[in-house]
Nucleic acid binder design. Structure first.
Lengths: 255, 255
DNA sequence: CTTAAATTCTAACAAATGTTTGGTTGATAA
DNA sequence: TTATCAACCAAACATTTGTTAGAATTTAAG
């Protein structure tokens, strides 16, 4: 499949993009990482880009999505982001080449640079997007629940779904920090701390014994969930059952 | 530091190897992975190696370490293995280049291939060595302990020491499986299953409630310990305290 | 000293990498 | 029609990668 022969123009066009469906209607998160040049310490381009024509990298530069034709632009970009996210999650940062991403998107390697600024910036944006989307999903999953253990279990379940659901922008990129270049790592960690705040509050609400360190408790729990795709095996237990088991194990004191 | 200028021979010799001390007097584990050519499905070399002279890769081919001069050979090889292990643990498989390893060993890239067969084989051997060494360390740490919770805590502590102690051949290579090529991954996973047997027995000895899945219990615990270098922060809690906390959290029922 | 073996260097190789440049296409609007 | 512009291609680029071949050197044995 995906034989890239002459079809219409350029030898291959918008084919093979069909079997992808975008679910996350998520957009309001800072994707300015690809726009403002000097806002990030990641691999500043050596030769200053001289490009008069407005390319897709400066999308949503004018705040509201009201520009004409900005709809398809955003769609295409979002599509590429999801493809890249999927590959990054599967193989890790370094094992995923620009050419891999481009091929999956039906493009050539160089053409990707119309949409992205660099591989590093692409990864950072994906990471941020995934983190923000995950935060929102968990927030929604907690809606209406009041019992602290119920809330914890719901958060665990949602976290499992997020981690194990490849194909969306909410993906297990959260681990494998070692495979990412140092320049990017610091930026990611900062964003991550922000995300952990949710679980900090969840744990703080638990009636834990005084001899249990709440900080470590949360770190261990998050470590489990973040590496879920590393230990999860399909079949034996459902994700809901696993979430229940996790809370049962972590529950203290057993009333 | 580590300026590699002309010193004696070849422009740089055995300098910069000084600040390394070998601790693990571990040797009796199968390092035949680098010797027998067709014993592994990892990246069979295309062109058959035609080399009459006996190189270091066929070390200990004759079972016992009684060959003349085999001592220094083993030492040099062991040194290289440790260096490579350290780098692999720090940066991951793909981010660690042959040239990085060679430089740390005071060699040039090509010279490394006198000692190793390929990068993949090197990684596989390191992984096996680390796994076997870890198994033995844990086994020793359990010596004399009979109470199942005490045994679990001792195993956790030893596992933490192993994971957090960079610089030895027992290292956190156990994770980051995504960064390793597919050809190698299967071999590693098989070895890993063997290692988990220790924890399977440890968990089986625990008086867990019937509504707790022992399998998942063990997997979660191992996942925590394996990714310890991902969440551990020096300073707040000692490793022994962390091990105690983990067992306290995982302890069921609370008697 | 001579000789052979063990170890490292020099120098390349092909392949893969991220990225840039300038041209080409198709659609839209004047 | 013509001009414009977003989107893509084609072709290269400079590095870095794992790996090899053969020459040079060191080490140990006779």
């Amino acid at each position: 499949m995906l034989s890239r022969k002459n079809t219409h123009k350029y030898g291959h066009s918008c084919m093979s993009r069909g079997v992808r469906f975008v679910r996350t209607s998520f957009s309001g998160l800072d994707s300015r990482l690809l726009m403002k040049r000097s806002s990030l310490p990641v691999a500043a381009p050596k030769s200053p880009r001289i490009r008069r024509t407005k390319d897709a990298r400066s999308l949503s530069e004018n705040g509201k999505p009201g520009s004409p034709g900005a709809e398809e632009q955003a769609d295409r970009r979002h599509e590429i982001l999801e493809i890249a996210a999927e590959l990054f999650a599967e193989r890790g940062y370094r094992a995923t080449s620009i050419r891999d991403i481009a091929e999956r998107a039906g493009l050539l390697a160089g053409s990707l640079y119309y949409h992205i600024r660099s591989k590093e910036a692409l990864f950072v944006e994906i990471h941020n997007t995934a983190l923000a989307a995950a935060a929102m999903r968990i927030h929604n999953a907690l809606n209406g629940l009041s019992d602290p253990w119920e809330r914890l279990q719901a958060a665990c379940l949602e976290m499992l779904e997020i981690q194990l659901n490849a194909g969306s922008l909410t993906l297990p990129i959260m681990n494998n920090l070692r495979s990412v270049p140092e320049t990017v790592r610091d930026v990611l960690i900062r964003q991550r701390d922000d995300f952990e705040k949710i679980f900090r509050e969840l744990v703080a609400a638990l009636p834990l014994e005084s001899d249990i360190d709440a900080n470590l408790y949360r770190i261990l729990l998050l470590s489990l969930l973040n590496s879920a795709d590393g230990w999860f095996r399909e079949g034996r237990l459902s994700r809901a059952e696993i979430a229940a088991q996790i809370v049962r194990i972590f529950r203290h004191p057993k009333n």
